[in-house]
Amino acid sequence: MDMSLEDVYTELVSEHSRSPENRHPLAGANCSLKGHNPSCGDEITLELKIEDGIVKDAAFEGVGCAISQASTDMMIDLIRGKSVEKARELAGKFIAMIKREITDDDELEELDEALSLKNVSNMPARVKCAVLAWHTLDDALKEKK
């Protein structure tokens, strides 16, 4: 537990959660979806600006624990500029990582910074915090296909 906790609460997570660069209203957003974990109070509103099948820009607003906030912030860094299809693929990959369906680091490498949340898969109580943003993204993009 000590090891995995240190791994999860690395500088990276704490940086992303204390001052998330992507937490702000998004001018020109044309897609917005709310994600909520009722049992713990994590709440995010994901805002996307999608043009020609590309996620041109993204941002979020909301409140929650360090893991949910950091995960959302990292996700937005990752999907900005990607195609809707690619963004959904990455969301699927992240969720598969947390569910331990994909464990190979080579395969997960393209998740970039979000790979640092891999150890949340060892913390069952925190899984829903990590995947909230990615499920919300997937739901939002499902309608955009």
């Binding site: 000590d2 906790l5 609460y9 713990c40 929650g64 360090a66 913390m123 109580a125 925190r126 915090c129």
Partner: peptide
Amino acid sequence: DVHPHDVATILDS
């Protein structure tokens, strides 16, 4: 200023 679930996880460790 710290989310309770983060506090719980850290205390648990």
